[in-house]
Design a protein around this nucleic acid. Sequence first.
DNA 1: CACGCCCGGTAGAGCGCTCTCCCGCACCCC
DNA 2: GGGGTGCGGGAGAGCGCTCTACCGGGCGTG
Lengths: 346, 346
Amino acid sequence: MSRQAPTLEDVAREAGVSRATVSRVVNGVRNVDPGIQDLVRRAIERTGYTPNQAARQLVTRRTTTVALVVSGAGDSSDTEQNAFATRVFADPFFGRVVGGVVGRLRPRGMHPVLMFAETPESRQEVVSYLRQGGADGALVVSTHHDDPLPALLADARLPAVLFARPGRPVPLSYVDLAHREGGRLAAEHLLARGCRRIATVTGPLAVAASQERLAGFRDTLARHGDPYVPVAEGGFTVDSGMSAMASLLAQHPDVDGVFTANDLMAQGAIQVLRDQGRRVPRDVAVVGFDDSSVAVTCRPRLTTVRQPVEEMASTMASLLDDHIAGRRTDATSVIFDPELVVRDSA
Amino acid sequence: MSRQAPTLEDVAREAGVSRATVSRVVNGVRNVDPGIQDLVRRAIERTGYTPNQAARQLVTRRTTTVALVVSGAGDSSDTEQNAFATRVFADPFFGRVVGGVVGRLRPRGMHPVLMFAETPESRQEVVSYLRQGGADGALVVSTHHDDPLPALLADARLPAVLFARPGRPVPLSYVDLAHREGGRLAAEHLLARGCRRIATVTGPLAVAASQERLAGFRDTLARHGDPYVPVAEGGFTVDSGMSAMASLLAQHPDVDGVFTANDLMAQGAIQVLRDQGRRVPRDVAVVGFDDSSVAVTCRPRLTTVRQPVEEMASTMASLLDDHIAGRRTDATSVIFDPELVVRDSA
DNA sequence: CACGCCCGGTAGAGCGCTCTCCCGCACCCC
DNA sequence: GGGGTGCGGGAGAGCGCTCTACCGGGCGTG
C-alpha cells in the first residue's frame, strides 16, 4: 500500500535493459542472452517485482481462472442462497469434484472461482462475470436436469464444460458416467448374492442420472425374470434415504436387497433397516452408488458402484482448457465407466 | 471470439457522448442528466456492452475476488494435493464456511477463488497470486495450528482474515469460537445427565481448538470433583472417532458418557459403541461438537455443541472487506459463543 | 448586471503489460 | 568481400477503463 509496487519499467531500469526484454525473461519467450537473463532475474529479485495480472489480462485477454459453478434449476429466494452452498457441499461428491478440478487446474497455474447459480439473477451473474472476462470459461455442475444455465452459456458463446449430459441438447462438451451400466452392475451383484425381493431407492427423477441408473437396474432385473421392482424416490440425502427406505419397508417388509442411487441414501437406508431390526447384509443387502467417502466410514462399509468423480472432474477441466485455448472447437463428450466395489453391505 | 466485444468507446459513439459520461452512467457516479442517462443505457443495450474487468482492475487496483484458502501445515507431496481438497470437503464444516462466505460476498458482487495451501510451493503461490493482484485479500482456514501461511501473508502486508486464532501471534484479524466454553457446555450436560465415568475424544492436539475444547471440558469435570478424564486423540474424521472410541472402550469398558470434539467423530464413536453392544444414549451418552449436517442425519441424532460456522465465515468476509476498503487498519478478533443443542444422543 | 458557482459534460493522461515491428550485428555462404 | 540470414534487443503502440483536470453555461447573489 505504502510504496508503489515495482513495475516492469522499474526492473528494466534496474537491469539496464528495456521493458520488452524483462517481459521476455519473465514469460520465457524467445531467446534472451543468458547473461542478460540473469541480470534481469537479479533485478527482479532486488526489486521484488511481481507482474500485474490485470495489466497482463488486459492485453492477453486471458485470466488465470475458470468459474466452477454449482447450478440448480430453482428460483429459490436469495436468502436461501448460502443454504444452497452449505447443502451442496454436504455431499462429499462436490468435494471430489473440487479435488479433481483443482488437481488439473493447478499445474496450469489456474484457479477456480466458486459460483452458485440457483436463481435467474445468479445465473445472469455467472454469464456476466464470464462476459466481463472475470474467468476464461465455466465448469458447470448442475443439480437439476432442466438447468437453464448451459443454454445461457452456449448462447453467449462462452467456453463451458458440463458435468453430466444436459437435459435439453446444448452444444457444449460434457463428461458423464454410463449410469445405466452402473444400475446393471448393482442389479447383477444383488442377483448373484441370491436376493429375490429387490427394491430400489432412486435419486430425484428430475435428474437424468437417476433415471438412467434406475433404467439399467430395472432392465437387468427384468431380463432375469423379475418384472416388478418396488421403487421409492429419494433426494440424494441421508434423510431422504431414510424416508424412502421406511416407505419401501412398510409396503414390502420382506425385501432382501436394495439398490440406492447414491451412498448417502444407502447410509440412511441402512440406519432405517437396522432400526427395524434387519441385519445388513445378512437380512437385507444394500448397494450404494458413487463410492464416496461415506462408503468406507459408514458401518457396514458400503458395497457400491464407483463413479470416478475426481477423474471426471479432471477431464472436465482439461476439456475446458482445450476449448479456451482453441485446441478444440466443437463440443464433445467423454463417458466414464462405473465399477462395482464390493465391501460389506452387500 | 469473432466480433470484437464492444467497448466504452463504442457505446459513447453510439450514444453521441463521451467515454467519461458512459463510464459515469455505468458506475453510477456523479450526476448525469436523466435524459442522457437513458440515452446511454439504451446504447449499452443496443451494443450489448459489458465492462472489461481487467481494464477496470488495472486502474482501480481492485478485483472482484478474494481468495478462500484452505491451508494445511504439511509439506505433503504434490500428488496428494487433490486428495487434500477431497478430504477437506469431506467434512461438512467447510461447506458451511463456503456458504457463509458466499452469502456475504455475493451482495457485494465479489466471488471467492478457491485455493489450497499445504505445501511450501502452494503457500508461495497464494502469496504470489495476491501480490499479483489476482484477488484483493485472503480468507484463510487452517487445518493446523502451526500453519506458516498467516505469517507469510502478514509479512507481505496482504489483507487477510483468519478462521481461528493463529498459533503464533500474527497481526491479522480473525474470528474464533469460545472453544473452552464449548467444552464446558458439553461437560455440564453430561454431568447433569448423571454420567459418572466420562471420557473424551479430542481433535488433533496440534489444533488449538482441540486443546481448548479439552481444557474447558476437563476443567469443568475437575471442578465437579472428577479429577481424571480418559482421553483419546482423534483426527476429526469418522474413522479416527471409531478407533479413538475403540481404544477408550478397551481401557474403560464402564464409560457412560463421551464428549467428542466434533460431530464426525461422534458418529464414529456411536458406531463403535453400538457394535460393542452399548445403547446410545441409554448406556453411553455422546455429545458432539459443531452441529454440522451429520448431527441431524446420524442416528441417534446428535446432542452437540453448536458452532455458528456460517455466521463466523460471514463475519470473516466482512472483516476482510473492511480491511480491503481501508475502513479498518488494525487487526481485530471476533469471538463467537457456542451453544448446546440437545437432541437424542445425550 | 457582473461575478462566482455549481452542474453536466469533455478531453486526455495514464494504469502495467504484451507484442509487433524494426534495427544492428555477427555469421556464413558463395 | 558483398549480401543474405537469423538472432538478440529496443521502441512504441495500444489493450479498455477511470479519473483528474478543465470548460461552458445557467443561475443565484450583491
